[in-house]
């Protein structure tokens, strides 16, 4: 097993853990962390699978950098929304949908 494949497999495991966290955890800050775990998993797969030959491939590195910017922006937005929700309701969990 090459190190690249190992990275990719760990990446898939992290991604799965992250998705489970986002879906199952009720505490919003932990959900945001889980989302970050998910993103890191995808980035590891991207870099790991591209490790073929001796020279590193620059394209996935550029993609991961872009992906990190997106993840930081999404995390900031989520944290801002959670802070506001906490200020309004005093809770760090989503209220039940009143739907109909």
């Amino acid at each position: 097993m090459t190190s690249g494949l190992l990275f990719a497999l760990v990446g898939v495991a992290l991604f799965a853990l992250g998705v489970a966290g986002v879906v199952l955890i009720a505490q919003l800050p932990r959900r945001i962390l889980a989302f970050n775990l998910m993103g890191s998993g995808a980035f590891l797969v991207l870099v790991g699978l591209a490790q073929r030959g001796d020279l590193p491939d620059p394209v996935p590195h550029a993609m991961v950098l872009t992906g990190i910017v997106v993840a930081v922006a999404a995390t900031a937005l989520a944290l801002a929304l959670v802070r506001r929700l906490h200020a309004l309701t005093g809770r760090l969990q989503l209220p039940e949908d009143d739907g109909d």
Binding site: G41, A42, V45, G48, A50
Partner: peptide, 9 residues
Amino acid sequence: LLGVALIYG
């Protein structure tokens, strides 16, 4: 994104 990563790989 994970799908794209696999395709790139």
